[in-house]
């Protein structure tokens, strides 16, 4: 396919069409089903663009059927694929149409992984923990800040990505240097996320023990003369030591079970903690 056509200023779809695709992209996940996952949603989202690209009814029907196939990716990157598919529908000759679905299928896996790691496992936890740490202090500003920070990326990136995918998508994917940028951002996001996670361990998880040790004092020979609180001792070694130990323990349990039994683990922890509280250990 020729790149000149794509980078040329005149596109068949104007901003209003891109806005319509964006609006339909927002409701794409609603039609998720076990047969084609988001296939119906993708067809619905791209339909207005197809209507504009194919004036002939028979071609339009063909194109709609072409997009009614198995599809699943991450919502913020659906936008790129959606824009890219629209660009390909517009620029390819009838013989090249077979290449559209393989491209979609080839992209949806890697982009879903990138979307999950960037948005779900980095950005959302960062804004969530900033919001939560403010909210723990009793301020409504926490959730408001989280809402704004989260949705600037969530909604903003989604709209921008449709237009970006449509106008520049193919250039972008062919350019290795650009792909490198994604990898680099992903690495950096990972590091930021991990440091925030480390900070959360000490701020959010509070494990304290009321246990005390009675020390016999040899000098005065009095029983119960010195009572040492275990918690004070732990705090002297490292503040939040118990929180760190509990988290590492939970981490290894989850890793052994592949994280599938998180809910069971939570219930088990409740039972254990209630039990420990009964014996005055926690």
């Amino acid at each position: 396919m020729s790149e000149e056509k794509l980078t040329a200023p005149e596109h068949k779809l104007n901003n209003r069409d891109i806005w319509r695709m964006f609006m339909r992209l927002n409701t794409m996940r609603i039609t998720l089903n076990y047969e084609t996952l988001q296939g119906v949603g993708f067809m619905r989202a791209i339909a207005p663009a197809l209507a504009k690209i194919y004036p002939d009814k028979k071609d339009l029907s063909e194109a709609m059927k072409r997009h009614l196939v198995f599809y699943n990716s991450h919502v913020n990157f659906d936008a790129v694929i959606l824009g890219l598919s629209a660009a390909m529908e517009e620029t390819t000759t009838p013989d090249e149409k077979d290449g559209i679905n393989p491209l979609k299928t080839g992209l949806m896996g890697p982009l879903a992984g990138l979307g999950d790691s960037l948005i779900k496992f980095t950005w959302l936890p960062i804004v969530g923990s900033i919001g939560a740490s403010i909210a723990f202090g009793g301020s409504i500003f926490g959730p408001i800040l989280m809402f704004i920070l989260y949705n600037v990326i969530n909604m903003g990136a989604r709209y921008y990505a449709v237009s970006f995918g449509y106008k520049k998508g193919i250039d972008f994917l062919n350019n290795n240097e650009q792909n490198d940028v994604i990898q680099r951002i992903s690495t950096m996001a990972n590091v930021v996320g991990l440091m925030v996670v480390g900070a959360l361990i000490s701020t959010v998880i509070k494990v304290k023990t009321p246990l005390k040790i009675v020390v016999h004092s040899n000098v005065s020979n009095k029983v119960g003369g010195n009572v040492i609180s275990l918690q004070t001792m732990f705090d002297k070694i490292m503040p939040g030591l118990l929180s760190l130990l509990v988290t590492v323990l939970v981490y290894y349990i989850l890793k052994k079970t592949n994280g599938k039994h998180a809910a069971m683990l939570i219930i088990a922890m409740m039972v254990v903690v209630v039990g420990l509280t009964y014996f005055k250990i926690l």
Binding site: D116, S117, F121, T122, P125, N190, V191, G193, L194, M195, V196, V197, G198, A199, L200, I201, S202, V204, I205, K206, V207, G240, S243, L244, V246, T247, V250, Y251, I253, L254, K255, G259, A262, L265, I266, M269, M270, V273
Partner: peptide
């Protein structure tokens, strides 16, 4: 106040792609 460790550990599972990344958890914690 202890159960949030499950959420944090789940995050760590997806983010700790290499062993050396543990040091950033330590840094954040400290």
């Amino acid at each position: 106040s202890i159960i949030p460790s499950v959420g944090i550990a789940l995050l760590m599972m997806t983010m700790l792609k290499k062993g050396e990344l543990w040091m950033f958890i330590i840094l954040g914690f400290v």
